[in-house]
Measured scan of single mutants.
Amino acid sequence: MQRVNMIMAESPGLITICLLGYLLSAECTVFLDHENANKILNRPKRYNSGKLEEFVQGNLERECMEEKCSFEEAREVFENTERTTEFWKQYVDGDQCESNPCLNGGSCKDDINSYECWCPFGFEGKNCELDVTCNIKNGRCEQFCKNSADNKVVCSCTEGYRLAENQKSCEPAVPFPCGRVSVSQTSKLTRAETVFPDVDYVNSTEAETILDNITQSTQSFNDFTRVVGGEDAKPGQFPWQVVLNGKVDAFCGGSIVNEKWIVTAAHCVETGVKITVVAGEHNIEETEHTEQKRNVIRIIPHHNYNAAINKYNHDIALLELDEPLVLNSYVTPICIADKEYTNIFLKFGSGYVSGWGRVFHKGRSALVLQYLRVPLVDRATCLRSTKFTIYNNMFCAGFHEGGRDSCQGDSGGPHVTEVEGTSFLTGIISWGEECAMKGKYGIYTKVSRYVNWIKEKTKLT
């Protein structure tokens, strides 16, 4: 034993070699072989497995989906700052455009905790909710729209109204504003409101030439003092309507412009014939205590009207009353817009006519005020429907199939267009061939041609 100890002390290297040989010859039971080890760690190889990531292109799944990435790591994937920024906006807080917040056709661009709407022409605001041009839906104005110097929408209202708090709607500024039905039992019968379409306001006024200088022999019209197929109006439903009495009662109609003036057809009036105007009328054979009678003290036909040349060209006249009318729910003026808007309103496509005229061709006159909704007829169809001249200051309205029309005794009465609950004068009943005849239409004086003249002559002093 002493000898062994001496050998170990003198030859430590020998001992180490012996131990190493023993270990190498022993069977290893701690580690699995290569094949079995792979069965336990069965993990798919990654895209760049075996390579240094710093030297390969980034992978979106590896960089940002398996674990949260930084902007720089995302930049490695896209290799483009702009594309990385677009991805980053949604990656950080989701897609803010998912709810489609942009209105009126706006395009949404996502941002971090926010979004941006790219608005089409005519709109602005956070969600493109603000109209900035009158060309689109009248700028959301209830009545009139004008573009300011910086191309912003400025709404306005006709006389007797003021802008509401929203700067879009119009509200009454006087007790009985024009064009409004205020009798409670008839307010439910107000005709369907007309909503502004998209309009090209630059070209809204037709490029028409008034044929002022045409000389033409007097034409022989049949029954051209021209509501057939209409309905009984309720008291106060058309408070701007008046009836004219002269040699015979209810020979023509008219509309209240203001307390002192009536507008009617020029062919209705004769110099030297006494005319009485009755406002607030409903049943011409009954006294309903809503009527107001006034005498006409002055007749002003349009300066281009000449019955000797043509009885229905420039067929418009103004009547001055001896005493002002007292405005109330049964006696209310009709609204008159400017030339541009009167023309736009007419193009809405349908209007209402009213009167006490004959209820059928050569038949009896109506006792109760009649009204009828009539569609506008395109000019080409209008011209083809008659052998008589249709001037540019006239328009056609009615039904091709016949059966409904204005008729004798309705002449001078109103053709009105309702705009968001307020009625505007767009025409004056003038003439036609018979009444409600198939293929024939009622012919009306186009008020847009005469609004400046009306307003100039009827100013209240």
Rank of each mutant, 00 (worst) to 15 (best):
R3T: 06
V4M: 14
M6H: 06
M6Y: 12
I7C: 06
M8R: 13
E10I: 12
P12H: 08
P12N: 10
L14F: 09
I17K: 00
L20I: 08
L23M: 11
S25I: 15
E27M: 04
E27I: 01
H34S: 07
H34D: 09
N36K: 13
K39A: 13
I40D: 05
L41P: 10
N42Y: 08
P44R: 04
K45P: 15
Y47K: 04
N48A: 15
G50C: 05
G50D: 15
L52D: 07
Q57L: 09
G58F: 06
L60T: 07
E61F: 05
E61Y: 06
M65D: 14
E67A: 13
K68T: 12
K68D: 12
C69K: 04
S70F: 07
S70H: 08
F71L: 11
F71Q: 15
E72T: 10
E72N: 15
E72I: 15
E73R: 06
E73I: 05
R75K: 14
F78D: 10
T81R: 10
E86Y: 06
F87Y: 15
K89L: 06
K89T: 08
Q90F: 11
Q90E: 06
V92F: 08
D93H: 15
C102R: 00
G106T: 03
G106Q: 02
G106H: 02
S107I: 03
C108N: 00
K109W: 05
K109E: 07
D110G: 15
D111G: 14
S114W: 06
S114C: 10
Y115L: 03
Y115D: 03
E116D: 14
W118Q: 12
W118E: 12
W118A: 12
P120I: 07
F121Y: 13
G122N: 10
F123K: 10
F123M: 06
F123W: 15
F123A: 05
N127W: 09
E129W: 02
T133Q: 14
C134F: 03
C134Q: 03
I136Y: 12
K137N: 09
K137I: 05
N138D: 08
E142T: 09
F144P: 00
S148M: 10
S148T: 15
A149I: 11
D150R: 09
N151R: 10
K152V: 14
V153Y: 15
V154A: 13
V154E: 08
C155D: 01
S156D: 11
C157N: 00
C157M: 00
C157F: 00
E159S: 09
G160C: 01
Y161W: 10
Y161T: 00
R162Q: 09
R162C: 04
E165Y: 09
S169Q: 08
S169L: 05
C170F: 01
C170T: 00
C170K: 01
E171A: 11
E171C: 04
P172I: 05
A173L: 13
V174Q: 08
V174G: 06
F176V: 07
F176K: 04
P177K: 01
T186N: 10
L189K: 10
T194C: 04
V195I: 08
F196P: 10
F196W: 12
D198G: 13
D198A: 12
D200I: 11
V202L: 13
N203D: 06
S204H: 11
E208S: 12
E208D: 14
D212M: 09
N213L: 06
N213C: 03
I214E: 11
T215S: 09
Q216N: 08
Q216L: 11
S217D: 10
S217K: 06
Q219T: 09
F221H: 11
N222I: 08
F224T: 13
V227C: 09
V227M: 11
V228M: 06
G229Q: 09
G230R: 11
E231A: 07
E231Y: 05
K234S: 13
P235I: 08
G236T: 05
Q237M: 08
F238T: 04
W240K: 00
W240R: 01
Q241H: 11
Q241L: 12
V242W: 01
V243Y: 14
V243R: 09
L244K: 01
G246R: 00
K247N: 04
K247D: 03
V248C: 04
D249C: 00
G254L: 01
G254E: 01
I256Y: 00
I256H: 01
N258Q: 02
E259S: 06
C268I: 00
V269Q: 03
E270C: 04
T271L: 11
G272A: 03
G272K: 03
V273E: 02
I275V: 10
V277T: 03
V277P: 01
G280H: 01
H282K: 06
N283H: 12
E285H: 11
E285A: 12
E286Q: 12
E286Y: 08
T287A: 11
K293T: 13
N295S: 08
N295W: 02
N295L: 02
V296P: 02
I297K: 05
I299L: 05
P301I: 08
H302T: 02
H303M: 09
H303D: 11
H303Y: 13
N304F: 14
Y305W: 12
A308C: 05
I309F: 11
I309H: 10
K311Q: 05
K311I: 07
Y312T: 03
N313Y: 10
N313I: 11
H314C: 03
H314N: 12
H314Y: 08
D315Q: 01
L318T: 01
L318Y: 00
E320N: 02
E323G: 03
P324N: 05
P324W: 02
P324Y: 03
L325I: 03
V326Q: 14
L327P: 04
N328V: 01
S329Q: 08
V331Y: 00
V331P: 00
V331T: 06
V331I: 09
T332E: 03
T332Y: 05
I336F: 05
I336A: 01
A337L: 01
D338N: 09
Y341R: 14
I344Q: 07
I344E: 10
K347C: 03
K347R: 14
V353P: 02
S354Y: 08
S354E: 03
S354Q: 08
W356Y: 14
W356L: 11
W356G: 03
F360H: 14
K362H: 13
K362Q: 07
G363E: 13
A366V: 05
A366F: 10
Y371M: 11
R373L: 06
V374I: 09
V377D: 01
R384T: 15
R384C: 03
S385W: 12
S385D: 12
K387T: 14
K387I: 05
F388Y: 15
F388C: 10
T389G: 12
I390K: 08
I390C: 05
Y391V: 06
N393Y: 06
M394V: 11
M394L: 09
C396V: 02
C396D: 01
A397Q: 02
G398S: 05
H400W: 10
E401Q: 15
E401I: 10
G402C: 07
G403C: 08
R404F: 15
R404H: 15
G409K: 11
D410A: 07
D410N: 08
S411T: 15
P414S: 08
P414A: 09
P414N: 13
T417H: 02
T417M: 05
E420K: 12
E420H: 06
G421K: 11
T422R: 03
T422S: 05
S423E: 03
F424P: 01
L425N: 02
L425A: 01
L425F: 03
I428D: 00
E433C: 09
E434W: 10
A436V: 04
K440A: 07
G442P: 04
G442M: 09
I443A: 05
I443F: 07
K446W: 02
S448Q: 06
V451E: 03
W453A: 01
E456G: 06
E456P: 02
T458K: 02
K459T: 14
L460I: 08
T461A: 12
